[in-house]
Simulated assay, not measured.
Amino acid sequence: MESPASSIQTDSWSPSNYSYHARFVSTIPQDLISLLSPKPHERILDIGCGDGVLTFQIQQMCKECIGIDKSPRMVEAAQVIGCKDVRVVDGERLKEWVISEEFEETFDAVFSNAALHWIKNQESVVEGIRTCLKPGGRLVIEMGGKGNVQVIEKSMITALDKRGYDGASLSPWFFPSQETYTALLTKASFQISSINIFPRPTYLPTNLRGWIDTFGHPFIQNLDDKEKEDVINEVIEMCKPEVYNEKDGSWMIMYVRLRVIAHLV
């Protein structure tokens, strides 16, 4: 049987791009770790650990923190910065992984930042989280919410549709409303302590091309080089009126975040 780790497909993530173009992903939500409030005796699972910047911090505060990510390259980058236990695991197959590992004990908490919206099958990942947690265990997550990077997503879809592709089907993201995610968690026996959706206008450290290179690859990874370049240029032009400031040359994207704290009943 294929393992949750062996099912990982071609890895298009670039740790160097992530660090250079998108370090804000791990530096802005530092208060999320405060909300997690790791305890010295706890076992914590970090889903979508990326290059491990937040995982490393959590590992210093608790008994054990395992970071998992679908990208082997990002897991390798997390190991380079000193993360003790990070593994290549497909979050959509989280339940299978937990069962296959035969852990002696489940986790006190599950943490995730800016990762769960990359998983289309949310029922699967929520069921996996439920399997991971002890009774009363907590879930502390932040992910993209309804309306997140909306201008870019719509522009990517439009540019691809124009060329005969089904742009919407190529979008890798799931950006739920507060109501949708509340229903999803409640159905899986979670009691929600707080759930908030809020805008987070974010200035890019570089530019929109760098952002697309870092996060937009699922839309265009199967295009040839010329078509890929044409799509990127067209998307930049479509987005410019809303995300580019000609006065100072800055690029600002409207992020919308969904933040949840819940406990397993």
Rank of each mutant, 00 (worst) to 15 (best):
K39T: 03
I28G: 00
A22Y: 04
K39M: 12
I47W: 10
G48H: 03
T27I: 12
P38L: 10
G50V: 06
G48L: 12
P29S: 04
S26V: 13
Y20S: 14
Q30G: 03
P38D: 12
S37Q: 13
D46K: 04
A22Q: 10
R43M: 12
I44Q: 02
S19Y: 01
D51R: 08
G50R: 03
D46G: 03
E42K: 02
P38F: 08
H21S: 12
E42C: 10
D51E: 13
N17P: 00
S26L: 00
R23E: 14
I28P: 01
L36P: 07
A22D: 10
G50Y: 08
Y18P: 01
L35P: 00
D51C: 05
G50P: 09
I33D: 06
C49R: 03
S19D: 13
C49D: 07
Y20E: 15
S34N: 13
G50C: 09
V25K: 03
D31R: 13
K39Q: 15
D31F: 07
S34A: 13
S37V: 01
F24E: 07
S26I: 04
S26P: 00
P38N: 12
P29I: 03
I28H: 06
Y20W: 06
L35N: 02
S34K: 15
S19P: 00
D46Q: 09
P29A: 05
L32S: 09
I28V: 13
S16E: 15
S26C: 07
L35D: 12
S26R: 07
I33L: 14
D51W: 01
Y20K: 14
N17L: 10
D51G: 05
D31G: 04
G50A: 09
L32T: 06
L45Y: 04
R43G: 00
G52D: 08
Q30V: 09
D51P: 02
G48Y: 01
H41I: 03
T27L: 11
G48M: 08
P38C: 12
A22L: 12
F24S: 02
G52H: 05
L45H: 02
R23N: 14
S26Y: 15
I47Y: 11
H21W: 11
L36F: 08
R43K: 13
I47H: 13
T27W: 05
P29Q: 02
D31N: 15
R43Q: 09
D51N: 14
D46H: 08
I28F: 06
S26F: 11
F24T: 09
L32H: 09
P29C: 05
D31H: 15
I44K: 04
P40W: 01
D51Y: 11
I28S: 02
L35W: 08
E42N: 04
K39A: 14
P40T: 02
Y18E: 00
H41R: 02
D46M: 03
R23K: 10
I47T: 11
T27M: 04
L35S: 08
P40I: 00
F24P: 06
Q30R: 13
L32W: 06
H21T: 01
Y18H: 05
F24R: 12
